[in-house]
Structures are given as structure tokens and as C-alpha cells.
């Protein structure tokens, strides 16, 4: 089943071009349609950083070094996950025009949206690097940064998996959106995004293994902010965990998504 999809994916000759075209147009639709345009892409993380900085550093005094960078990096990754999962629940409805009249592989639609979100995350990451290196004294980027590539890959697998799962469940249960909003809320607050890792681990042992976004955030911070190697057991667990969800997602796409044209 998976082999068939991958085989089908590579057989076409213009698929990369099409992926880029769809991702570009998706990106344009999202940011260039407003008057503030690309600025919005930055306003969101900056306003979030401001709120959490006031709450967790000024009021609760967690005393995490370089707290703004700590938040910024985590939120970039988290927002990518949320945009790719929550933001795509209705993808089979909004992108129906792509598969309603042709035999286009639906997986391409999902990948192009992920691609568009990657462009957005890329810009945010550049802003983060500029801030991190210019405004924090004594910070530098070490060779450990190469592990950022597999960590992003893990994030892509996880986001694609939930994008597939949610959008296909949407075909049979429209209120999955509300249910998912609660799950996302839980996943945000019970994660290392805002808290000092030691405290979180002491109070809620095992939570870094249950919440699939945790391993990604923890290891990204280790390699970029702490210049150390990833925690290997979390690193590999992240891949196994998100791979498992991707398997469910592909199963649902074949089971439910194949009937999307007649159900929507």
C-alpha cells in the first residue's frame, strides 16, 4: 500500500514542479492576500512570545537562560505543527477542485500544503537566527545544527500524519475540529514549550514520551541553544511515534479519503 503510493509519486515527471507550484500558490493565498502581507507571519510568533514572556519570565520567574530564544524556537516548531494539522482539517473540501475532475494523487495535495508551511517556517527560522545571534551575548551555532535536518523531517512526518488523520476523519465527523482544538490545547500546555524541562520531567514523568511534539522541541533546543547532541532515545522514539501515526493516516486516506469526491 505505502509502496504503491511512493511508486506512483515518483513515476510522474513533473511532480516536483507541481509540488512547488501548488506550495507557492498556497503560500501566496495565505500571506499576500492581506494588507499586512508577510508581516502577519511574524506578528503571530512575536505577540505570542511577548505574552508568554510576561507570564512565565516576569511573573513566574522560571529563570531559563535566553528565555525569548527558548520560546521563539519552540513556538516556530509548534506553529508549524498546528498550521499543518488544525489548518488542514478541511483540506479535502477546500482542495476538492484538484481531485474532482482528474485522477490526481491526493497525497500531493497534502505535501504541497506542508511545503507551503515549510516556506513560512523557513522565514521564521531566519528571524529567529538573527535574533538569537545578534541579541543574546555569547551565543553561537555549532556543528550540532546538522541534526536539525532529521528533527525537521520528524516534524514533517508528524504533521503530515495528523493532517491525514484529521482531514479524513472530517469526512465522517465534521466536529472533529472542536475535538482537536481541545487535544491541541492539552498538547500545548503539557509539553516543554513553556516550562523548564527539569521541572516538567519531575512533575509529570514520561510526558516527553507521550506528547509527540516534545521530543522535537527538546532536541531542537539541545542542538541549537545548548550546542549538545540530541537525546538519542527521544530522538529515535520521535521517529517511531510519528511513523506510527503516519501509517494510520495513510490507512485512513485509503479507506475514507478515496471516497472524498462522493462524500463532500
Amino acid at each position: 500500500m505505502i509502496f504503491n503510493i511512493i511508486n506512483d509519486w515518483f513515476k510522474g515527471t513533473n511532480k516536483l514542479e507541481r509540488f512547488w507550484l501548488l506550495a507557492k500558490i498556497e503560500y501566496k493565498l495565505r500571506y499576500y492576500e492581506n494588507t499586512l502581507g508577510l508581516l502577519w507571519a511574524l506578528v503571530k510568533p512575536i505577540s505570542e512570545i511577548f505574552i508568554y514572556y510576561v507570564a512565565f519570565e516576569l511573573i513566574l520567574k522560571q529563570e531559563i537562560p535566553n528565555f525569548v530564544s527558548f520560546l521563539f524556537l519552540g513556538l516556530i516548531l509548534w506553529n508549524f505543527f498546528v498550521e499543518s494539522s488544525t489548518g488542514t482539517i478541511q483540506i479535502l473540501a477546500t482542495k476538492k477542485y484538484l481531485y474532482e475532475y482528474t485522477n490526481m494523487n491526493k497525497m500531493e495535495i497534502y505535501l504541497s500544503v506542508i511545503g507551503s508551511n515549510l516556506i513560512g517556517m523557513g522565514f521564521n527560522f531566519l528571524m529567529f537566527l538573527a535574533y538569537y545571534l545578534l541579541f543574546n551575548s555569547g551565543t553561537y551555532i555549532s556543528w550540532h545544527v546538522i541534526f536539525f535536518i532529521p528533527i525537521i523531517l520528524n516534524l514533517i512526518i508528524l504533521s503530515l500524519a495528523f493532517s491525514l488523520i484529521l482531514s479524513n476523519i472530517y469526512l465522517i465527523a465534521k466536529d472533529i475540529q472542536q475535538v482537536w482544538a481541545i487535544v491541541v490545547g492539552l498538547a500545548f500546555w503539557i509539553s516543554p514549550l513553556l516550562f523548564k524541562l527539569d521541572i516538567l520531567r519531575a512533575r509529570l514523568p514520561g510526558v516527553d514520551y507521550i506528547n509527540p511534539i516534545s521530543s522535537i522541541v527538546i532536541n531542537a533546543r539541545r542542538i541549537i541553544l545548548e550546542n549538545t547532541l540530541p537525546e538519542w532515545d527521544l530522538f529515535f522514539w520521535g521517529f517511531i511515534y510519528s511513523g506510527f501515526f503516519l501509517f494510520i493516516g495513510i490507512y485512513l486516506l485509503n479507506k475514507l479519503g478515496s471516497k472524498a469526491a462522493e462524500k463532500l
Binding site: T13, N14, L21, L22, I25, T102
Partner: peptide, 9 residues
């Protein structure tokens, strides 16, 4: 988009 979906470069 239509052209690309139908396999054109």
C-alpha cells in the same frame, strides 16, 4: 494548476 495536474511541465 490545471496544466500541471494534467502532467505538463
Amino acid at each position: 494548476i490545471s496544466g500541471s495536474v494534467l502532467g505538463l511541465k
